[in-house]
Write a protein that binds this DNA or RNA. Structure first.
Lengths: 381, 381
DNA sequence: GCGCATTCTGAAAGCGCTTTCTGCTACCGT
DNA sequence: ACGGTAGCAGAAAGCGCTTTCAGAATGCGC
């Protein structure tokens, strides 16, 4: 009875399946038991077959208490012969706790979220947790709905990965869901700034990152800038835009409103914004796209319109999603350790709740690549 | 009693929260009820507060039966005042069905899976379902474990998105989990070919797609090919490689074994494979990477080693992940409607189970882009 | 060989919800 | 005004599991 079935936590039988072979008997598989539209095998069935009580069967499968070796064997054998799978709902109900966590992001297929989700799922797996993934497709209302669903699921933790909205009504609705969840022991952690949510936070230093980027671009000699931005209501937008603008102001440089183009936070949004910029005949020598994803779209737009990057205009992004290394030219950006961000926010949610909310600040690192150079000549208006 | 709270399905209270204001009383919010580490609000609590029976409260919240208007009001009010969230586990237990589906892929952060996951989550959301996402990180054992977990969760359906493994032991272990799941009413749908799994399938025509691609490349004038491939045990690999090779063979052209480089199915795998190809001094004028993701790595490797694409060597991929439009040069590939694939596999799983497993074949479309041209000159060994 | 401490097993009470099943009230036709 | 029939509320029996509690079996010391 050494180290076998050290089955920590999960209670998943899985590994027992192939052990069936050790049971002497005939070749009768599981098929001798259940018919076509068979009902679920319950712990009761297992107990009956092993000729033990329900309690004993439960104890064996959970390793709660020591159980006499022969009974133990019988239960394990019965469970695997019947291909028993515990009903997680019944377990969750009886134990008043579940093995899943909720992850809410804007869009899984966005490389930014995908990278973070990777960190989250990996970490969750290390703890035997299952991730319930929700994509809001950038609809605030849907975000609230999902929190309600996850609350109903008694998710052990809820992770909000998307940027917060600066919107009174939304904040109110969100709090109305989150507060009772937290009050009953739910854990919440968010990535990026959420104005009014008093929860544990992993906070990329968007403002500082954008400032540092602006300085680096100023150092390259740029004086005329344009910014491709997402919806103003997102905290990420106001932080990055604010930090960038402030750095310019400090350097005595103005960022005219007509050089700030607002579009959706997507590749196509970036494409549209850059196209609009070209249409307006911008004199900017350097364009800052608030996210790499937008920058990718912008890069293609410039290429399609015969604007050379960085020859005619320099382009910078933010996030350092993996793909930007492979672009031509490789993109200057503010690097965030995305996968680690996911890992941290997961760990934060798993840690003992603190008296007051914790904030982990993550510093972005400016990475200058070939998409930015010193301005050669004015980009003719 | 018109169209308000038409609360179809979900039973999520959410929207009721702000209605609290209509109750005349004092400013006492929910805080008058629960303390700090408060217990969960149960339906019983709601019923008590509304002075109705448990059954009535349940009926109101589910819209099962008509309930007298005043009682109905009282229940709704009580629920929102208490910020009641039904316990999904208890519901799942009582109803013997749940609102979640399982999605198993290799790695969410791979654009191929991310795009498919997007289609799946969108479709799932349309049906009020929550997606439990599992990334196996390409570990077959983990894949089986996840099926066990999802089975325990009584997921309404399990979607296997990754390629199947051609491995007896794995197939056996997988069937051992899947068979009982299906037998008890679980729905399983897979994307890509799984040799021994008799389940509903959305099947991209990998073989045919690769054949068509090969023909197109032959038409361009290429005669010397190399292939960058993933692990041979994946059905996707054997199908695409097989189809490609067959087309060459039909044209009387040999694909030497040393021109087939096996690496992991990732961007870095593609990079490594292309680097190895260069090291070997290949005379291939055209390289086929079995996936776009590998092709992206290969493209960067060629660039880093000063090999011009398509000048010195043409490069083609497979899948048409969104980003390939933005590469330089844009990648020739076999386009698969990825998001639609996710949608289809989800719908397949949701449809009434059929007597025998259905197979939806999806034809890939060869898209020639700038990464392939006619061979100019032999790529010097 | 007896009493007591020590395991280990089994019976049973929930966990929070749905859903019969039963019983009531109120309304209809005549 | 009366029987009949909807229509609706409440009691209670589960759903499948965990876990206390009490009881049975084992081992020990003396």
């Amino acid at each position: 009875m050494g180290d076998d079935s050290g089955d920590s936590g999960g209670g998943v039988t899985g590994d027992g399946v192939s052990a069936t072979g050790t049971v002497g008997g005939g070749a009768s598989g599981a098929d001798s038991t259940a018919g076509a539209g068979g009902a679920h095998v319950t712990l009761q069935d297992v107990a009956r077959r092993a000729e033990v009580s329900l309690a004993t069967a439960s104890r064996v499968l959970n390793g709660t208490t020591q159980v006499r070796a022969d009974l133990r064997e019988r239960v394990l054998a019965a469970a695997s012969e019947l291909a028993y799978a515990p009903n997680a709902h019944a377990q969750a109900l009886a134990r008043a706790s579940s093995h899943s966590i909720g992850l809410i992001c804007h869009d899984v297929s966005d490389p930014y979220f995908a990278a973070i989700a990777r960190g989250v799922t990996r970490t969750a797996a290390d703890h035997g947790l299952l991730v319930m993934l929700a994509s809001t497709f950038r609809d605030p209302a849907r975000e609230v709905d999902y929190v309600a669903m996850l609350r109903a699921q008694r998710a052990r933790a809820i992770l909000l990965i998307g940027s917060g909205f600066e919107d009174r009504e939304w904040e109110h609705a969100m709090s109305a869901e989150l507060d009772p969840y937290i009050r009953t022991g739910g854990r919440v952690a968010v990535l990026s700034r959420h104005r009014s949510l008093r929860v544990d936070t992993v906070q990329p230093e968007n403002r500082e990152g954008a400032t540092a980027l602006a300085r680096a671009l100023l150092d390259l000699g740029h004086r005329d800038f344009a910014v491709l931005t997402g919806p103003r209501a997102l905290t990420t937008v106001s932080d990055r835009l604010g930090g960038f603008r402030d750095a310019l102001t400090d350097a005595g440089i103005d960022l005219p409103d007509d050089q700030i183009i607002e579009e959706s936070f997507t590749r196509d949004g970036g494409y549209a914004a850059a196209t609009e910029l070209i249409r307006r005949g911008s004199r900017a020598t350097c364009v800052f796209a608030l996210t790499d994803v937008m920058a990718i779209g912008a890069l293609s737009a410039f290429r399609d319109h015969g604007v050379d990057v960085p020859g005619q205009v320099s382009l910078a992004g933010f996030d350092d999603i993996p793909i930007v290394r492979d672009l031509v030219p490789p993109l200057t950006t503010v690097a965030l350790p995305l996968e680690e961000l996911g890992e941290r926010v997961m760990n934060l949610a798993l840690r003992e709740p603190a008296r007051r909310s914790r904030v982990e600040r993550i510093t972005g690192k400016v990475v200058l690549r070939a998409s930015t150079t010193a301005p050669r000549r004015r980009h003719a208006g």
